[in-house]
Design a protein around this nucleic acid. Structure first.
Lengths: 197, 197, 197, 197
DNA sequence: CATGAATGAGTATTCATTCAT
DNA sequence: AATGAATGAATACTCATTCAT
C-alpha cells in the first residue's frame, strides 16, 4: 500500500467526519475536538493533514461540490439528445435534496458563511458557474429553430435557481412536497419554456 | 410616553445593531461585545432586554421576517385583480435582494443555522408558510376557468423557490444579472404558467 | 476611589505577579495561567488589562527598567560634585544585584529574548542609552583639566559594562564575591581611570 | 570509520543545527521539528542521540562553551610572558562577540535560563570558573614585585565581567562601538591596573 | 436602570515524545 | 538505524454571562 494512498485515506476520513458533524451541529458550533472524536483520531492528526480549521472547512466544501458535480454530469453523460439531457438534468437537480441530503446541509451552512467570507463565496460562485456552463454547453447544440436564443441563455440560471430554492424548502420541511408530481411539473415547465415560440 | 415605549426603543436599537453586525461578520463570528459596541450600549443592557444570545438572535430573525412580510403584503395590498397582484408580487420578490440586502444576509445566515436548530427552522417554516398562504389566498379568487387548479396550488411554492434561488445567486454575485430583463422574464413565466390550458 | 486608580492597581498587581513568576520559572516556562494564579485573578482579567502575553511582558520590562532608573537617579540626585556623583553612582550600580535581585533576574531573562526580538532589544537599548546619557551629562560638568576628554566619553559604557558583567556573575553565584571590597576596588578603578594624566 | 565516529558526526550535525536555530529564533520559540528540519533529519533521529530536548540543550551549551575555551586557550598558548599573555587574552575576549557571534547568542539565551535552571547555572559557573582559573594560573607566574597580590586575585573576575558586559552591549547594538579603540583602552586599563604601585 | 470588570469554561493550535513500519 | 505519523496534554486567547457598584 503506497504511503500517499494512506494519507489520502486519512484526509477523506477527516473530511467525512467533518461533514457528519456539520449536519449534526452546524458550522457555528463546530469544534475541532468534535471532529476528531467523530473521525476517531486525535486532534493533532487533523493538523497533520490540514493547515487549520479554515483550511479544513474549505477542503470540505470543495470536496462536497466536486462530488456533487461528478454525480450531476455522470447522470446525463450517456444521453445524446440535448432536450433529453435537459429533462434528465432537471430531474437530477430536483432529486438532490433527497438523494444527497448531506450535500444540501453542507451547502446551506456555507451559504451563510459566504455572505462575509470571500474565500467561501469564490468556491460557491465557481461551483454554480461550472454547473451553469455545463448546461449551457449542451443547450448550445440545439438547432436554432428549436429554441429561442434569449431563453436558452437564461435557462441555466433559472433551472438552478429553482432547484436551489426547492432544495432549501425540502431541507426545511423534508417530505412536505409531492416529490414525483413536482418533478414532472418542473421538468415540463423548463422544456416548455425553452420551446415556446 | 409609557415605560414600555422606551423599552421597545432599546430593544429595536439592539436588534438593529445585531443585524448590522451579522451583515459585517456573519453569525459565526458574532460576539455580544460587538453588538453592544455597535448599539452604543453596555453588554449588561442586552441582558436586560433579552434572555441570552440565542433569544436575541431569534428575536432578530422574527423581527426581520415580520418586516419583510409587512413590506411584501403592503406592496400589493392596494391592487384588486389577482393576476395583477401576482405580477406585482413576483416582481417585489425578485427585487428584495437589491432593495433589502439586509434581509437577505440575515436570511442566508440563519438558513445555515436552521439545518440543526429546530427553533430557527420553525420560524423559517412559519415565515415561508405565511407568504405562500397569502399568495394562495388571492389566487383562490381567480375564476375557475382562468387557471388550472393544480397549477394554482403549486404556484406559490414555485414562485418563492425561484425567488429564493435567484436571491441567493444575486447575493453571491451582486450585479451579474440583468435585473430588469430577468424581472420581465420571470413575471411572464409565472403568469403564463398559470394561464396555460 | 476613582475608577482609573483601581485599574492602575490591577495592572500593577498583574505585573508584580509576572515578575515573581519570571524569577521562579523563567520566561520560557511562563504560562498565563501561572501568572493569573500568582496574581490571584482569573486569566480573563489579564486580557482585560493587557492586549496579549507579548504586550504584558513588554510592560513588565518597561516597568522594571523605569523603576530601576528612578532608583539610580534618585540615589545620586542630591549630590553636586561630579566626581562624588560618579563614585556613588558606581557603588549604586554594583549594589543593584543584591539590593534588587528582581531587577537582575528580569533583566537576564529578557537579555536572551532581545537576541531575536526587536521590540525587546529596543527597550533594552533605550534603557542602557538613557543611563549612559545621564552619567555623561554630569561628567560633562567636570573642568577640562580634571579629566581626559576621551576617557570621559568612554567611561559610561565601561562603568555599565562592568556593572552588568559583575551583576551577572553575582546572580549566577550569589555571595561568592567580597562585595564591599569589590565596591571599593571598582569605585577607585573608575575615578583613577578618569583622572589619570 | 568506527560506528562511534558516525554517531559523533550525527550528534555534531544536530548540535550545529540547534545553534543555528537558537540564533534565529531564540530558546523560547525553539521546536524539535525546527531543529530536525534545519539538521536535515527526522525528529526520531534526535531522540536516538539525545535523551530529550533538555538533554540536547545542555549538550549544546557544553559543546559551545568547550569550543570557546579551546579557542581562548589556543590563542595565547604559544606566548610565554604572563603580561603579554594577559594583553592578548583581554583582546581575544573583547573580540569574541564579533568573531564568534554564535557563541554570544547562545550564551545570552542560556543566561536567562540559568536564573531558574540549576543544571544550566552549574555549567555556566563551571565555564566561567575555568576561564578565570586559567587566567589566574598564568598571572601566578608573575614575580611578586611586578603585581599587587590583591589585584592579581581580582583581575580575572574584572576582566571577564567587563568583557561580558561589553559583549552584551555589542550584541544589543552591533557596531556602535569603535572596536579597535576600545580594545586598546581596555587592554591598557587592565595592564595598568595590575602594575600600579 | 446601566455599567463594564470579572469569571472560567471552552476553542484552536502547538509540540515534545513515542512507536509501528 | 531512520522515518514521520500519531498522540494528547498544555497554551494563549475568547466570550457568554453575572453582578457589585
Amino acid at each position: 500500500m503506497p504511503k500517499t494512498g494512506m494519507q489520502e485515506v486519512r484526509r477523506e476520513q477527516v473530511i467525512a467526519a467533518t461533514v457528519r458533524c456539520i449536519m449534526n451541529k452546524g458550522l457555528s458550533n463546530l469544534s475541532m475536538k468534535d471532529i476528531a472524536r467523530e473521525a476517531g483520531v486525535s486532534t493533532g492528526v487533523i493538523y497533520h493533514y490540514f493547515e487549520n480549521k479554515s483550511d479544513l472547512l474549505l477542503q470540505v466544501l470543495k470536496t462536497t461540490f466536486q462530488r456533487s458535480r461528478e454525480d450531476a454530469v455522470g447522470a446525463i453523460a450517456a444521453v445524446a439528445d440535448p432536450i433529453e439531457k435537459l429533462d434528465r438534468h432537471v430531474r437530477a437537480i430536483l432529486r438532490t435534496p433527497r438523494d444527497n441530503p448531506q450535500f444540501f446541509s453542507v451547502f446551506l451552512c456555507f451559504l451563510g458563511e459566504s455572505v462575509h467570507d470571500p474565500a467561501v463565496r469564490d468556491i460557491m460562485n465557481r461551483f454554480l458557474g461550472n454547473l451553469k456552463a455545463y448546461m449551457a454547453s449542451y443547450l448550445a447544440q440545439l438547432p436554432a429553430e428549436d429554441a429561442d436564443a434569449a431563453r436558452r441563455d437564461t435557462l441555466p440560471t433559472l433551472v438552478y435557481a429553482l432547484g436551489m430554492g426547492l432544495g432549501v424548502m425540502w431541507t426545511l420541511q423534508p417530505g412536505v412536497y409531492a416529490a414525483d408530481t413536482l418533478e414532472e411539473t418542473v421538468a415540463a415547465l423548463w422544456t416548455d419554456y425553452l420551446k415556446k415560440d
